[in-house]
Amino acid sequence: MESLLKKLVKAAKKGDQHAFEGLVELYKDRIYRLAFRMIGDRHEAEDLAQEAFVKAYMNLDKYDDTYAFSTWLYRIATNLCIDRLRKKKPDYSMDAPLSTSDGGTLYQQIPHSEEALETVVEKREERATLQEEISKLPEKYRTAIILKYIEDLSLEEMSAIMELPVPTVKTRIHRGRELLKKVYKKVMKSR
């Protein structure tokens, strides 16, 4: 039996926008999250994630099902994010303050009592710091850390998205982890 996903992809390829809408619904959270964690800014992330879907739609005829549809989408989104980061580089320095707004939903941030408020604020700061540190990683390590730990993808999926052999993907995860560890250590000590 053909899966719903395959049906949607097939119909979307034929130009059925309702089917494509279904695909956007299925993957919007993952693609937006990837863009937000890569870029660190909500509005830019939203623009990029939307651009990724529009680009996917325009190139549906090029999608072949050797790869999972999600892998193909992730690849489009990752490349768009990297392009954006490269374009941004000249006007930002490592010292420049990065956006610290975090992407938790409003509901998640509503404290249930006065006491809880402190914890919520503390947690939000922690998350913002970690996001900031991830944003400082060179893009190749940042991509590896986000795909591995936030998107929870396998090395094989990462290899297909990053268009790199598995051993290179592994090296990038290790290097990214090492770099992040150094700053994480400082953050933990300062508490």
């Binding site: 809408e21 956007v24 619904e25 919007k28 959270d29 999250r33 964690r37 975090d102 998350r127």
Partner: peptide, 18 residues
């Protein structure tokens, strides 16, 4: 780091794409 996964696309995202 894994905890940073709990975010969702903003409201109206799909409609904007469409």
């Amino acid at each position: 780091v894994k905890k940073l996964a709990d975010i969702s696309a903003p409201l109206g995202f799909t409609a904007n794409v469409m």
